[in-house]
Design a protein around this nucleic acid. Structure first.
Lengths: 308, 308
DNA sequence: TGTTAGCAATGAGCAATACTCATCAGTCAG
DNA sequence: CTGACTGATGAGTATTGCTCATTGCTAACA
């Protein structure tokens, strides 16, 4: 009789539709698989209708489920927008969000996140701090930036550090390169090759810091600023490179070059967002932090969210 | 950080905006005043903003409150519509809803309720059973009607009976009639007057059943089918009538005739909807039952809902 | 000016319920 | 057949949303 539906249920349905899997949907909502299963059963009992087809993998919504999903898709964005409005009412419209990056490839996913953000907070001054800096965190302390994208968690009490996502770095080699025959590359394999990198300090290159330096290997080097140029050099056997899989997936799909894991376990890298603790509570900052996670999940193949 | 907003909160805000009063809003939601107060405080703490201005009576929403109310007004109807869709998915589109009335004046508020219903359930056959019947409940058993509007609760297990609302019956007299000088009319006052009624059996006239019959008073009678005709007769001192206040409020506001309570405590009447128990669970029936209550609250002055 | 009625706020306590945990059953790939 | 991965389920717990009882405030009225 009385409606038992709550926003919680709509969020659940959205997560299930997005992941096609109760377990992963639960993760996304910071709940357990059991919780979602119970929620679902309660809804289905209440409406006397199945909401999803359990037989299929990935999980498919029934017609009734789709109806409610449609509701969720119209209601939840409206709720989010209203909550932003309230935050603006409390904190005012304006503010600044200057982003410092240490990693070239980040632009790929930062751009769509920034676009979405601009629509939410037109009055916030949004910038990427130009030029590359050895230590982007330093820019935060100098108040020349409000947010830094870094590859290791910062352990400073003056900073709030939010995990973004993890991804695999892969070695890129020409399709007919002898190393392409191997299932994965060891540090040794780089010894006699030319390593192609961005023109940044060694400490900012995960391959060098985590794999080659520890093994005492220091290959010949060549640098370029552009990812496409790197791929061009690799394809023409002028050297090998190591890049995030998500930044080159498009080229891999076209068979332009070959990717191989670095070391047997793979080389897993992570990204974190660091913001001055004083800025962390701002609503627009919180919004951007979640936006970055959302956008990267949507757009980048093979990344996994890190628990905040 | 995490959103705590739920549909429950939106319903609360809507009720507060509608009643301008926590206590009455709580009644409408079948909760206590305390519950709403706590809800409100939780929201205000979470958003760091006051949602309503406590100083004013009736309670006024702040800008932030209005924002959320706007959200409620867009979200809640969408939710209700989706739930109707689900009900249709389960039970099918069609059905019949034939309404039997024992009280002439009911048309005033039945019409808008029926209009709203038709929009919700276009495939349900909606009718008022024509002609007047001494016992509309009988029509339910004969399966010639699906819902009856009656003035006393039915005590039959085969029927589901929902209270609708309560209202005051008032005596109508000419402005310069001697009885207009009295604050209220006693049974005695009717003895030498002509009573103007609808042409229905005496048991269906609350004034006769509850006041005059018990006092052993049986005044002269005159009948007419139309409410306006009754008022015309009253105004020209051809007799006095007793009608629901809500059905004549418009004429009273224009000073056309004078209204006086019947007996010192007033003559309070009630309306109930009776439906065959077998039909009561149908979603469209439930929808109509709540629609009748909603519409009468909105349109009829001085009525009060009865607790179901 | 005291008195009462009406209203919202508050804190304590309780009951409903939303969740987790542990486990089971089914499906699929190796 | 086994192990990995899935969702379902029941029991138990932690949370939370609610009610109850009371207080403080305001306004109306004698």
């Amino acid at each position: 009789m009385q409606s038992i539906l709550e926003l919680r249920h709509l969020k659940t349905l959205q997560a299930i539709a997005a992941t096609g899997n109760l377990t992963r949907a639960a993760e996304r909502l910071f709940l357990t698989q059991s919780a979602l299963s119970h929620q679902l059963r309660q809804l289905e009992e209440h409406y006397g209708l199945p909401l999803l087809n359990r037989k299929s993998t990935p999980l498919k919504l029934t017609a009734a489920g789709e109806k409610l999903l449609g509701l969720a898709n119209m209601v939840l964005p409206a709720v989010a927008a209203s909550e932003r409005d309230l935050a603006r009412l409390r904190e005012g419209e304006a503010g600044s969000l200057r982003i410092a990056v240490e990693c070239h490839t980040c632009f790929d996913w930062l751009m769509p996140a920034m676009d979405r953000f601009r629509a939410h907070w037109p009055e916030v001054e949004l910038d990427i701090v130009s030029g590359f800096h050895a230590d982007p965190v330093q820019l935060l302390f100098e108040e020349r930036a409000d947010l830094a994208i870094v590859s290791e968690p910062e352990d400073d009490a003056a900073l709030y550090c939010q995990p973004l996502f993890a991804y695999d770095m892969v070695a890129l080699i020409a399709n007919d390169h002898p190393l392409a025959a191997k299932a994965w590359l060891a540090a040794e394999d780089f010894r006699d090759e030319t390593l192609i990198t961005y023109p940044v300090p060694d400490e900012m290159l995960d391959l060098l810091r985590k794999v080659l330096k520890p093994a005492g290997i220091n290959p010949k080097r060549r640098t370029t600023e552009l990812t496409v140029a790197m791929l061009q050099l690799v394809a023409s056997k002028r050297g090998i490179a190591a890049l995030p899989r998500w930044s080159v997936q498009g080229y891999l799909d076209k068979g332009y070059v070959t990717a191989r894991p670095v070391t047997q376990q793979g080389l897993r890298s992570e990204l974190y967002a660091a913001v001055p603790a004083t800025h962390a509570s701002h609503a627009y900052m919180q919004d951007f932090l979640t936006l970055m996670r959302e956008v990267s999940m949507e757009n980048l193949p093979g990344v996994s969210l890190l628990n905040p």
